[in-house]
């Protein structure tokens, strides 16, 4: 019987000739004809490496896409200063654009204005919940940041009878909670 899932990946045969980007991706094949909406849809396929159910667009970290002197410029903002996924996300965005035939897209990092969980889209929030991560609740007001009681609902059973286990979870953007009713621990996407 064939096992699904944990199959080791076949090791690709060594290449006879080195592949360079231009061999694989013909320059500007259709890439420049993409409309802005199509570009946003394209980046909506790039998932967050830490939470692979939401896209970088849904997380709100892609701030702008624009053509400047025949070069596509994408501005990306990190969620946290030390987010270890920042570089990987930037590479994946560039790779997705190149695969769509856009030559030499430029991905720049912008810090200002600072990312806020308010920028996570509604679909992103719903996907987080379905994935077992409680989405940020309310808006990132100072009141929330200063720790005034937050009512976090369990993403598994919906109960609001939950307690904080730790202010920090498996990544900087999350806190650790536990549901008192269904007893499941869960991550809460912190509101910043």
């Amino acid at each position: 019987m064939q096992k699904s899932g944990n199959q080791p990946r076949p090791i690709p045969a060594p290449l006879e000739q080195p592949i360079i980007a231009s061999d694989r991706v013909p320059a500007n094949v259709g890439g420049e004809q993409l409309t802005e909406t199509q570009l946003w849809q394209l980046l909506d396929e790039v998932k967050d490496p830490e939470v692979p159910v939401v896209s970088v667009v849904e997380l709100g970290i892609v701030r702008s896409i624009q053509w400047l002197d025949n070069q596509l410029q994408v501005a990306v903002t990190p969620t946290y200063s030390g987010c270890p996924a920042t570089e990987l996300i930037e590479q994946q965005i560039a790779a997705a654009l190149m695969q769509a035939g856009i030559r030499d897209p430029q991905v720049t990092r912008v810090l200002n204005p600072a990312w806020t969980t308010d920028w996570i889209s509604d679909s992103g929030r719903e996907k987080l919940r379905a994935y077992g991560i409680a989405p940020p609740q309310g808006s990132a007001s100072k009141m929330t940041l200063l720790g005034h009681a937050e009512q976090i609902s369990c993403p598994h059973c919906g109960s609001s009878h939950t307690e904080q286990v730790s202010e920090f979870g498996s990544t900087a953007c999350k806190a650790l909670y536990r549901c008192i009713d269904c007893l499941e621990p869960f991550d809460y996407f912190k509101c910043i």
Binding site: G147, E167, K190
Partner: peptide, 21 residues
């Protein structure tokens, strides 16, 4: 200075948590 203000604004959100904890 825009750079200083931008880095500080980003860091301040994080440090607010640190201080609270």
């Amino acid at each position: 200075d825009e750079r200083v203000a931008g880095i500080a604004a980003k860091a301040l959100k994080e440090v607010t948590y640190h201080l609270r904890r």
